[in-house]
Design a protein around this nucleic acid. Structure first.
Length: 815
RNA sequence: GCCGGGAUGGCGGAAAGGAAGACGCAACGGACUUAAAAUCCGUUGGGAGCUUGCUCCCGUGAGGGUUCGAAUCCCUCUCCCGGCACCA
């Protein structure tokens, strides 16, 4: 028997697949379509285990769906713009373009070696001008629709990456890429109005099956908060101050107001205040203090009294106005009404500055309203000290107060979101140039569409310093205004790379298009993506931006669907020794080493078998050896079967029953939740069983071959190479890729006797053999013939007999 | 604090409300071998008993509940992971 030689087999079949263009997308509108997509890789040096897991899962789905007669789109591309290319440029003195394309060649070779069934004709490379041209085109469309604007604002500045970051890219006050603490820097930036789509992004009804946690993360990120704006009149400056609250029911408990130091009314108030010196000192100190986003979280609550008063909209009382460091200008109206009795922050502030505390919500557990509170009571209760609202339940009171305020024009219903507009400017070279021109006569004008792409110049000096390298490339910078023709200058910032990945999945539908980003019919046929697979780390970033992009494109008539990804699977990480694989921890396992040692099929099998896809997978050298043994067993069994000549039919029906059961089980496990680990367990069980049957020689050659062919087909999506080799050696001419997934009949049970559990009062007491067609009564009579059960049951009053077919019988007796 | 997800042998993990621990790993015993590797065949949740292959008890983070029957459903709690958080 020939030894299992994975490398030889795998390379042979990969070559054959390529030569026959097996995975090329076919034009076939009769079949049902299925778009299976894995998140494209960032073009860093090479593939790691996380990629192997991601792409293997996708490949199993793709091959399974093809065999189930779907028309498949399964593309791949490269997320090729971004900072690491520039860092490499500085470090290794290599051009970012060269570095990137070199890496793409490596990754492509590795993906091919993994045997993933991609349609290679549809590669997308985001740093290709033919691709980023459309980033610029979309930018201009967004600009024309008023969804793009420029403003100077405090930006998240990463001192290590020397560029700004979007809010989504700041994690715990640190840069998502390098972990450096993010600073604030005032810069002119381009923004996309994602906030206009906040409400639609909160609507997940167009999504079929996403992990609950991803939806929660997006909801948290958008952070919708429904409440009420309330107007307080300030007579001394004749202005109305608007505050936002979600607790209008506590309005009568307001004892002071607090403004953010950045609030627009602060200046006016300071002017007329008798305490202006103190205020100025305070504000200056606060503005200087808040350097990093992290610091803000730790700062102690402080404030200053303006000695100016506002009028309470209901009681007409004079309410003191303070300025406090804990009120954010970026959220709500930048001013809050303080209710120290029912908000812990306000409570602490009031204690510190001796401000009054007025209880207006009665905790149902209180017998009486306490003189003094230990801490704020933040829950709901009965409204007290609240004039006409007394006695109302505070939940209901919220509505009532709001309605009343609306009636007297002192407030209105209002909604705020945590979500901020998407800052897409990056002061870097290796990205899509923002197609904007600054003309001394016309101002800010977008580049003419027919001049796209605005190409990145190749000649550039990359320094890694805080300004875009494009500023120093004269040929790039100098241009003509597309409106008036005068000498003008280009924008030198480039786009966030998340713009690239917000629509790449649309480009795959028709990568050949030259005059359009994509063909409308093709995109509307293939999209939405039926199954998207990728890491959880993009739960907010990429997945939110893509949803937003598609919604805008729909509104502009480019596409006719609302959601890009109907089903999402977030695969878990591959970890070793309890930690994510990383160079710094020295626990990296290189996929190429594993392929050399065991072959791709074994690697794929292990990665699918060790855990369900969405759970973190602990790397185990012993575990992969187990999978290696399994494939060797399959291989040996295959040649045994070829030499097998037995005619004995005694167990033929049993074998047919078993393969039928396995096919059914695996089909269901894949359809249900992509439970590849249990699929593989079932195939292992079958192999154990078949091995025994062959040794006992109670099955006939004809049936063994028939069942074995079915087995090869169901193993195929998991370990395609070894299966093709076995298939071919059975004189089969077709690629398994073009074979149909085996069908299964509803199980005919052939056994004459089945074994069921016996429970007495729900407690398992043993088991008994019964003919399959017996009912509860007949089984009960059998039990009476059995020494053991007879002893327990005899003489007792039988209350109930419950028979669960093929599983167990439960006799309920009186004790 | 709010929201979401978890907790099952020595380990990774299985289990329509119906025999908990499939499958794999590790461990142990045996076969083959001069020997080892490889391979094959057994045993393997914990505890107790004896007549040694059978009987009993306990067991899915903890405690209650529903049910003939709960890892699974409900309530309370503990711990772990993830997200959001001076968000008004």
């Amino acid at each position: 028997m020939e030894k299992y030689n994975p490398e030889e087999i795998e390379i042979k079949w990969q070559k054959k697949w390529e030569e026959s263009e097996l995975f090329k997308v076919k034009y076939n509108r009769e079949k049902k379509k299925f778009y299976i997509l894995e998140m494209f890789p960032y073009t860093s040096a090479q593939i790691h285990m996380g990629h192997v897991r991601n792409y293997t899962i996708g490949d199993v789905v793709a091959r399974y769906k093809v065999m189930n007669k779907y028309n498949i789109l399964h593309p791949i591309g490269y997320d090729a713009f971004g900072l690491p290319a520039e860092n490499a440029a500085i470090k290794q003195n290599i051009h970012p373009k060269e570095w990137t394309y070199k890496n793409i060649d490596t990754i492509r070779r590795q993906l091919k070696r993994l045997g993933i069934s991609y349609c290679w004709e549809r590669e997308v490379i985001t740093c290709d001008p033919e691709y980023y041209k459309w980033n610029q085109y979309f930018f201009i469309q967004f600009f024309k629709r008023g969804l793009v604007y420029k403003k100077k604002s405090p930006a998240n500045w990463c001192p290590s990456c020397q560029t700004v970051l979007a809010n989504e890219q700041v994690i715990d006050g640190k840069c998502w890429r390098c972990g450096e603490i993010v600073e604030n820097k005032n810069l002119e930036q381009w923004f996309i109005k994602i906030t206009e789509y906040a409400e639609r992004l909160l609507d997940f009804s167009g999504i079929k099956n996403w992990p609950e946690r991803v939806i929660t993360m997006q909801k948290n990120w958008i952070g919708k908060s429904e409440g009420c704006e309330i107007y307080f009149y300030i007579p001394e400056i004749d202005e109305i101050l608007s505050v936002f609250t979600t607790r209008a029911d506590t309005l009568l408990g307001v004892t002071y107001l607090v403004l953010s130091p950045y609030h627009p009314l602060v200046e006016k108030i300071t002017k007329v205040s008798s305490n202006s010196k103190e205020i100025e000192k305070f504000i200056e100190r606060i503005k200087k203090a808040s350097l990093t986003v992290q610091d803000i979280l730790k700062i102690e609550k402080e404030g200053v009294d303006t000695k100016i008063f506002a009028v309470h909209p209901i009681t007409q009382e004079k309410i003191p106005i303070w300025i406090g460091n804990y009120v954010l200008m970026e959220y709500g109206t930048g001013a809050v009404m303080a209710v120290p009795a029912h908000d812990q922050r306000d409570f602490e502030f009031a204690e510190k500055y001796n401000l009054p505390i007025k209880i207006v919500i009665k905790n149902p557990e209180w017998k009486e309203i306490p003189e003094k509170l230990e801490k704020a009571y933040e829950n709901h209760g009965i409204m007290v000290n609240s004039e006409i609202f007394n006695g109302l339940d505070s939940e209901k009171g919220k509505e009532e107060v709001r309605k009343y305020l609306e009636k007297i024009n002192k407030g209105k219903k209002s909604v705020y979101y945590r979500l901020k507009d998407w800052c897409i400017s990056r002061q870097r070279y290796w990205g899509t140039p923002i197609p904007i021109i600054y003309c001394p006569k016309c101002g800010i004008v977008p580049e003419d569409e027919k001049n796209l792409p605005v190409k990145l110049p190749d000649e550039v000096k990359i320094t890694g310093k805080g300004e875009s390298p494009l500023k120093y490339v004269a040929e790039f910078l100098k241009c003509k205004c597309p409106v008036c023709g005068s000498n003008a200058e280009r924008e030198t910032d480039t786009m966030d790379t998340f713009v690239d990945s917000s629509w790449y999945f649309l480009r795959y539908a028709s990568t050949w298009m030259e005059n359009k980003p994509f063909d409308k019919d093709e995109v509307n046929y293939w999209l939405p993506v039926d199954q998207y697979i990728g890491g959880i780390e993009h739960a907010i970033l990429h997945l939110l931006y893509s949803r937003f992009f598609v919604k805008v494109l729909k509104d502009m008539g480019f596409v006719n669907f609302e959601e890009p990804f109907e089903n999402l699977l977030c695969q878990g990480m591959v970890i070793k020794d309890g930690a994510k694989m990383s160079k710094s921890k020295g626990n990296v396992v290189d996929p190429e080493d594993m392929i050399k040692k065991y072959g791709v099929d074994t690697l794929r099998l292990f990665i699918l078998f060790a855990a369900p896809p969405e759970v973190d997978l602990e790397w185990s050298e012993k575990g992969i050896e187990g999978c290696w043994r399994f494939l060797n067993r399959v291989w040996r069994l295959h040649s045994e079967i070829k030499n097998y000549s037995e005619q004995n039919q005694e167990h033929d029906e049993k074998l047919k029953f078993m393969i039928n059961k396995v096919v059914k089980g695996i089909t269901e496990d894949i359809e249900k939740e992509f439970q590849f680990n249990t699929c593989i367990a079932k195939m292992m069980e079958f192999i154990n069983f078949l091995n025994k049957e062959l040794n006992e020689k109670k099955v006939s050659k004809y049936i063994v071959i028939e069942c074995w062919k079915k087995f090869i087909k169901i193993l195929y999506p998991f370990t395609p190479h070894i299966c093709e080799e076995m298939w071919e050696s059975l004189n089969e001419k077709n690629f398994l890729f073009n074979e149909d997934w085996p069908s299964y009949e509803e199980l005919e049970i052939v056994e004459e006797k089945i074994n069921i559990g016996v429970q007495i009062n729900g407690k398992i007491r043993g088991n008994i053999e019964i003919p399959p067609d017996f009912d509860a009564e007949k089984i009960y009579n059998l039990l009476l013939n059995n020494e053991k059960f007879k002893k327990i049951i005899e003489g007792k009053k039988i209350i109930k007999k419950i028979y669960i077919p093929n599983r167990l019988i439960n006799i309920v007796i009186e004790i």
